[in-house]
C-alpha cells in the first residue's frame, strides 16, 4: 500500500477506490456482491410488537415471556421491542407541535426503552439483560453466557432520519431497526411477534374473516398495498435489498407454540421473502 505523489495536490492512498467517485453507479456494479460475511449467524431475532403485544399487558406478555424462556434451551436469541401506543402518541403530539422529521425520530425511542426495560425485568431471572447499540460487538459474549439480550428497535438515525418517501412520519421504525441489526449479524431467523396470524389477505379493519397469506415476496406485498399491514412498509423495501437475511416471519404471539414452531423452521404465520430467498430454496 503506497502513498501516491502529490500529482494533483491531494495526498492519496493507493487503493482500488483511489480518486474514484463513490457515487458512481459503475463503481457500484463493480463492487457488487450478493454474498456478504455473517457476524453472529446462529442468533435468532425475536421482534416483539409494541402495540400488538406490549400494549395488551400481562395477558399477552407473560405467556410470551415464558415461551421465550422455554426456547432458550434450543436457540440463541436476541429480543427486540417497539414502542407501541406511547410511541404513536409521541409522534402525534410532535406533529401537532410542528417538530421536524428528524425530531420525531429522535423522541420515539424513549417509549421503546420503557418496553425494553419491562421485558428485561421479566426475563431477568432467566438471563434477560439490556442490550444497547454500543454492545453490538459483544453479542457473542452475552449469548455464550446464556443471556437473553433485550434491545429497542428504533434504528439510531436520530436527527438524520431521511424525509419519508410516503406520508409525513419517519419511515424507519423498530421493525426496520431490528431487521437491520439481524442483517448485520447475518441472523438465522427474524420473527415478528404480533397479535394476528400473519399477514392477512384483505383489510384488517373491515372485520371480515380473512385468510392468512402463508408466503409472499416483499415486493409483491408492497405492490398489493394491503391496509393495516402488521409490519412497516419500509421493512419490505429494506428486506428487498438485504444480502444476509432473505426472509422474515410474522406470527401470532397470542397463540402458544407459534414462536417455538417458527424457531424450529415450521410453516406458521406468514413468510415474507426477497428474490435471493427464492433462489436459495430452489437451489
Amino acid at each position: 500500500m503506497s502513498q501516491s505523489p502529490h500529482d494533483d495536490g491531494r495526498l492519496h492512498l493507493d487503493t482500488g477506490l483511489m480518486r474514484e467517485s463513490l457515487v458512481s453507479e459503475k463503481l457500484g456494479r463493480r463492487t457488487h456482491s450478493d454474498q456478504v460475511r455473517r457476524m453472529v449467524p446462529d442468533v435468532n431475532m425475536i421482534a416483539v410488537g409494541g402495540r400488538s403485544i406490549m400494549d395488551r399487558g400481562a395477558a399477552a406478555i407473560l405467556p410470551l415471556v415464558d415461551e421465550i424462556v422455554e426456547c432458550k434451551a434450543d436457540h440463541r436469541m436476541i429480543v427486540g421491542v417497539g414502542g407501541g401506543t406511547r410511541a404513536r402518541h409521541t409522534q402525534q403530539i410532535g406533529l401537532d407541535l410542528g417538530l421536524p422529521n428528524g425530531g420525531l425520530a429522535r423522541i420515539v425511542g424513549g417509549s421503546e426503552e420503557q418496553n425494553r426495560d419491562i421485558l428485561q425485568f421479566l426475563l431477568a431471572p432467566n438471563g434477560g439483560i439490556v442490550f444497547i447499540k454500543d454492545e453490538i460487538q459483544n453479542l457473542q459474549l452475552q449469548l455464550n453466557d446464556g443471556m437473553i439480550p433485550v434491545t429497542i428497535g428504533q434504528p439510531p438515525y436520530h436527527c438524520w432520519e431521511p424525509p419519508p418517501s410516503e406520508g409525513v412520519l419517519p419511515e424507519n421504525g423498530p421493525d426496520v431497526g431490528l431487521f437491520l441489526m439481524a442483517e448485520v449479524f447475518g441472523a438465522r431467523s427474524v420473527t415478528y411477534v404480533r397479535d394476528v396470524d400473519g399477514v392477512l389477505d384483505g383489510d384488517v379493519s373491515s372485520g371480515a374473516e380473512l385468510e392468512t397469506i402463508p408466503r409472499i415476496s416483499a415486493r409483491e406485498l408492497l405492490e398489493r398495498g394491503l391496509p393495516g399491514l402488521p409490519v412497516e412498509r419500509e421493512l419490505l423495501r429494506t428486506l428487498d435489498r438485504a444480502r444476509s437475511v432473505n426472509a422474515v416471519r410474522v406470527i401470532n404471539g397470542l397463540v402458544p407454540g407459534q414462536l417455538r414452531a417458527a424457531l424450529a423452521g415450521e410453516d406458521v404465520g406468514t413468510l415474507i421473502h426477497n428474490d435471493r430467498y427464492t433462489q436459495e430454496s430452489a437451489a
Binding site: L22, E25, L27, G28, R29, R30, T31, H32, S33, V36, K133, I136, P155, P156, Y157, H158, W160, G177, L180, M181, E183, V184, T238, R241, A242, R243
Partner: peptide, 16 residues
C-alpha cells in the same frame, strides 16, 4: 457521517 453505522442499509447495487 450520520450515526447509521451498523444500521446502514445495503444500496440496490454495490456495497458502498
Amino acid at each position: 457521517m450520520p450515526t447509521f453505522e451498523y444500521w446502514e442499509k445495503s444500496p440496490e447495487t454495490g456495497r458502498i
